[in-house]
């Protein structure tokens, strides 16, 4: 996994609550057997009209989104389907972090496993970020994962929560599968003392 340490970027505001993973990447793009090419399909049906032309009023098609790495979204971001393609698509478009007031459980896990940082901020900060980015599309914020801070343009810093394990994995670029495999002895011991309830090769 790639590392996440610090990030300074403009915000791409998407002020909609409960953005589901079907919007982030529609199901028809899940026929792929690879992880490639998903950035083009990010928010496809919000981003392109029926003829496949970019909709100029959608924020991802505006100059402010070019080179920006932080998505600012409404509450409960990433609800719905478990498709990890949503996290892959956001990363391939260029996002490294998403700021919201809350994230759906499965999306949050998928994001962390791909070094896409979910940043939870209180409602007042969330509203202020939307106001700031509306006033000035070039508004930049800084994320420092080690300090768990989000720094606003006026220099104020807000702390955001992240569990110690995920933080360490992100800072060091550690892979969870490697960590799990270190517990081989414990897994084998568990299997010896717990008979399998079903055998899918039988029946």
């Amino acid at each position: 996994m790639s590392k996440f340490t610090r990030l300074v970027s403009r915000l791409v505001p998407l002020p909609v609550d409960n953005i589901d993973t079907d919007q982030i990447i529609p199901a028809r793009f899940l026929k792929t057997i690879s992880k490639e090419g998903l950035g083009e399909q990010l928010f496809y049906d919000w981003r392109y009209d029926a003829d496949g032309r970019p909709k100029p009023d959608f924020v991802l098609n505006q100059p402010r989104a070019q080179g920006a790495a932080i998505l600012l979204a409404g509450d409960n971001f990433g609800c719905g389907s478990s498709r990890e393609h949503a996290a892959w698509a956001l990363l391939q478009f260029g996002f490294r972090a998403v700021i919201s007031t809350s994230f759906a459980d499965i999306f949050r896990q998928n994001a962390l496993k791909n070094a896409l940082l979910p940043v939870v901020v209180p409602h007042d900060v969330h509203a202020e970020l939307f106001a700031l980015s509306e006033r000035d599309p070039d508004t930049q914020v800084a994320i420092d994962l080690a300090r768990q801070t989000l720094t606003l343009p006026d220099g104020r810093s807000v702390e955001f929560p992240i569990d110690a394990f995920s933080k360490q994995c992100l800072l060091e670029g550690l892979d969870e599968l490697g960590y799990i495999r270190k517990h081989e002895a414990a897994i084998a011991a568990y299997e010896r003392s717990h008979p399998a309830p079903v055998n899918t090769l039988g029946g």
């Binding site: 478990s82 990890e84 998928n110 496993k113 599968l177 799990i180």
Partner: peptide, 20 residues
Amino acid sequence: FGIGTSEVEHVLATQCLLQR
């Protein structure tokens, strides 16, 4: 419960998941 594709790989490889 539902899991993402990275977690599918973890379970295929180890029959285990990291969970809170």
